[in-house]
Nucleic acid binder design. Structure first.
Length: 302
DNA sequence: CACTAAACCTGGGAGC
DNA sequence: TGCTCCCAGGTTTAGT
């Protein structure tokens, strides 16, 4: 579900509710949603291993590590931020919740206590504040909330590529990353690589490549500098525009207030397979590239 | 190195 | 209505 604009929207909509608030209690219905350390990895058993080296607090013992609530309850939310598709919730005394929502994860804030009958199916964790509560919901159970030391966050995320909306993200940095990591690979798969640039997923790569007029299966090494410039511009413009519309809701995505994103109406190719190109009226084509369905205009994108 | 498939999961839509 | 099959916004690992 959430790509950069959606995670950014969740971050912004959550902030006024929980910043500077104390986590008074928490309820865990599916413990595997909480991970003790290391990079979040649903398939790696060592992430739930108490012997993992990237532990929460250096002075915590094994027994404490079996109960993640002990690192969270009583701490204050001191900052919320986003890096790529990760949401970072900094707590007092040096603990951070490093959250990746993967496909269907949601963080929904409720002002008032929710009675059991109103708790959504697939709610895995509830964080209770003095007033209000934050629900972590994830039908497909791909997402993870990783409890780490704040000081370990930079090293945990060091492999991520540059923030595309950062003012210092220039086209030549994108070109360099593409050249370093991908040569014969398609531009589609290269842009999905979080180490090239952080935050793009299947929706926005398709939209970016349409805006840049570049066909998704083009090998990176064949791209002209002028095309890299167009791709770089498109990344920044489309992500910023989508944030202005609170992201894209196809099915599951909601912000912290449960609201859908409105950028879906602005999508020009993603999900429009078989429909006509809004520029030239050519029928849009869908093709599997890099294991993901890609939709593009065979006329506008060469 | 580059690419593919599979794995992690559930639910929705299409087709019969 | 109900069944089966296929698909899905992400990421990592294993295999070719």
């Amino acid at each position: 579900m959430p790509e950069l604009p959606e995670v950014e929207t969740i971050c912004r909509s959550l902030k006024p509710h929980i910043l500077n608030k104390v986590i008074a209690d928490m309820a865990v219905f599916w413990p595997e949603a909480l991970v003790g350390g290391g990079m979040p990895d649903a398939t790696n058993p060592s992430d739930t291993n108490p012997g993992n080296t990237n532990l929460v607090d250096a002075d915590l013992d094994r027994d404490e590590l079996a109960f993640p609530a002990s690192h969270i309850v009583g701490r204050t939310v001191v900052n919320l931020s986003r890096r790529g598709k990760y949401l970072l919730v900094d707590l007092s005394k040096g603990v951070t919740l490093l959250i990746h929502l993967r496909m269907t994860g949601q963080l929904i804030y409720h002002d008032t206590p929710q009675i059991v009958a109103n708790i959504a199916k697939h709610t895995h964790v509830i964080f209770y504040f003095e007033e209000g509560e934050m629900h972590y919901v994830d039908p497909r159970k791909f997402g993870r909330i990783q409890i780490v030391r704040t000081l370990d966050v930079p090293s945990l995320l060091e492999k991520l590529g540059p923030e595309p909306l950062d003012e210092f993200f220039e086209f030549d940095a994108l070109g360099l990353r593409l050249a370093e990591r991908h040569k014969t690979a398609s531009i589609k798969s290269a842009l999905l690589d979080q180490e090239v640039v952080a935050g793009l997923g299947n929706i926005y790569t398709d939209e970016v490549l349409f805006a840049a007029g570049v066909r998704p299966n083009r090998p990176v090494q064949d791209l002209k500098a002028s095309e890299i410039i167009l791709i770089h511009q498109a990344i920044r413009e489309i992500l910023a525009e989508s944030i202005d519309f609170q992201g894209t809701t196809f099915r599951d995505y909601r912000d912290a207030n449960g609201k859908v994103g409105k950028y879906k109406k602005s999508l020009k190719v993603y999900g429009r397979n078989g429909k006509t190109c809004i520029v030239c009226k050519t029928k849009l084509i869908s093709e599997k590239i890099a294991g993901r369905v890609s939709c593009y205009c065979p006329n506008c994108q060469q």
